[in-house]
Design a binder for these strands. Structure first.
Lengths: 203, 203
DNA sequence: CAAAAGTTTAACCACCTGGTCAAAATAGTT
DNA sequence: AACTATTTTGACCAGGTGGTTAAACTTTTG
C-alpha cells in the first residue's frame, strides 16, 4: 500500500519533469518511465494514459494556484492588503513550483477550452473572486483606489507577478545573472511590486 | 520565380499557424502541408526539415522583436520617451503578430540555449541596448528616475507589455470578454502602462 | 502456508512520423 | 518544338509512439 503510493508519486515527479522539459507532445512515455526508473507499461497501469497523467499534474497546478489566489483574496482586509498577500503568496508558490507558469501557458496553447473550464470551475466554487472584484469597484467609488477598469487592474497585478518567472531565461541572459541572483531578485520583487502598485493603483 | 516565392511564403504562413496551435513537437508536417494545400514532400524540398522550417519562423520572430526593441531604445531621447516608444512599438507588433510571445516562450522551454544565443546575438549587433541601460543609470544618478536596479526596471516594463498578450485566454474567460474588447483594451493599455510607469519610475 | 490480490515485466501491436527518392509534370530557355 | 531546369507527386521507408496483454513476480489475506 505504501509502496503503491510511492510508485504513484514517483511517476508524477518524473512526469512533471519530462512534461516541463518537452511539453505534452514532446514528452515520451518511455522517457517518463526511464526517469521514474520503472517499466513503461506501469505508467498505464497507474495512470491509464499519457493524457490522464498530464491532466493529473495540470489539475494539481490549477488547484494550487487557485487556492493561493482565493486564500489571498478572501476575508475582510482592504484591497491592497489582499493584493499584497496575493503578490507574496503567488511569488512564494511559483518559486517553490517553478513548473506551474510554464505548464499553464503550455496548456493554454494546447487546449485552451479545457484550461478555461478548469479555471472557471475553481473560481466559481465560492464567491471569493467575485466579491474581490466588487470590492475593488467599491474602493474605487470611495476614492481609495484609482478608477481603473477591473480587468486592467487585475492584468497589471498578474503581469508583474508572473511574467518575471516565465521569462527568466531571457532575463538571465540579458543581464548575465546567475540563477541564485535571479531568485534573490524575485524575493526583492515582492516589495518592489507592492511599491509600484501603491503608486499606480492607489489615490 | 514568382511562383517559388509564393510557395515559400505560403508554407511559412501555414507552418506558423500549425506551430502556434500545436507547438514544435505537436505540429505535424502533413498538417502543415494540408494547411498550405501542398504535397508534404514539398516542405522538404523548400525547407529541408521540420527543424529548419521552425527555425526560419523563429528567426523572423526574434528579428522582428529585437528590431522593435532597438529601434525604440536608440537615439537621443530621454529614458521615459524611449520606454514609451517601446511600449507602443511592442504592443503594436504583438497585436499584429500575436504568435510571437507564444513562439518565444515555447522556444524558451524547448531549447533555451538556442534562444538565448539568438537573442544575445541580436542585442550585441550594436550598442543600443547597452547604451540604454547606461542611460537609465545616468538618469537615476541625475535624480530624474528613481534608483531601481536596472534588471527590475526592465523586467517591470516587459511584464506590463507582454504578459497581457500571453495570458489573453485566461483573462478572456475570467472577465468574460470578447476578443475585440480585449484587443481594444490592449490599445488602451499603451497609455495606461505609461501612466503607471510615470508614477512609479519617475521622481 | 496457499490462495488471492496486486504489481511488474517484456514482448508485441497498429499506427504515426519526418524524411527520401525517382518519376512525372510543369516552367523556362533557345 | 526540343531541351533543360525546376517543381510536384505518390509511394515508400525506418524508426518511434502510446498503448495492450499474458505471464511472471511480489505482497497481502485468511
Amino acid at each position: 500500500m505504501d509502496s503503491r503510493k510511492n510508485t504513484e508519486m514517483e511517476i508524477l515527479r518524473a512526469a512533471k519533469k519530462i512534461f516541463i522539459q518537452h511539453g505534452y507532445a514532446g514528452a515520451r512515455m518511455q522517457a517518463i518511465a526511464d526517469e521514474a526508473k520503472i517499466n513503461k507499461a506501469m505508467l498505464h497501469y497507474y495512470y491509464r494514459s499519457k493524457d490522464a497523467l498530464f491532466e493529473k499534474i495540470m489539475d494539481g497546478a490549477v488547484d494550487l494556484m487557485s487556492k493561493q489566489l482565493l486564500n489571498a483574496l478572501s476575508g475582510d482586509a482592504s484591497v491592497m492588503e489582499k493584493v499584497e498577500k496575493m503578490v507574496s503568496n503567488y511569488t512564494d508558490t511559483i518559486i517553490k513550483n517553478p513548473y506551474i507558469p510554464i505548464f499553464i501557458l503550455n496548456e493554454i496553447a494546447r487546449n485552451q477550452m479545457n484550461f478555461q473550464n478548469k479555471l472557471q470551475q475553481k473560481l466559481e466554487q465560492n464567491n471569493v473572486f467575485q466579491n474581490f472584484l466588487l470590492q475593488v469597484l467599491e474602493e474605487q467609488q470611495k476614492g481609495i483606489l484609482r478608477p481603473i477598469s477591473v480587468p486592467h487592474f487585475m492584468i497589471t497585478i498578474m503581469s508583474l507577478i508572473v511574467f518575471p518567472h516565465i521569462a527568466k531565461p531571457v532575463f538571465l541572459k540579458i543581464f548575465e545573472m546567475t540563477d541564485t541572483a535571479y531568485m534573490h531578485m524575485m524575493e526583492e520583487r515582492k516589495q518592489l511590486v507592492m511599491d509600484f502598485l501603491g503608486k499606480s493603483l492607489v489615490l
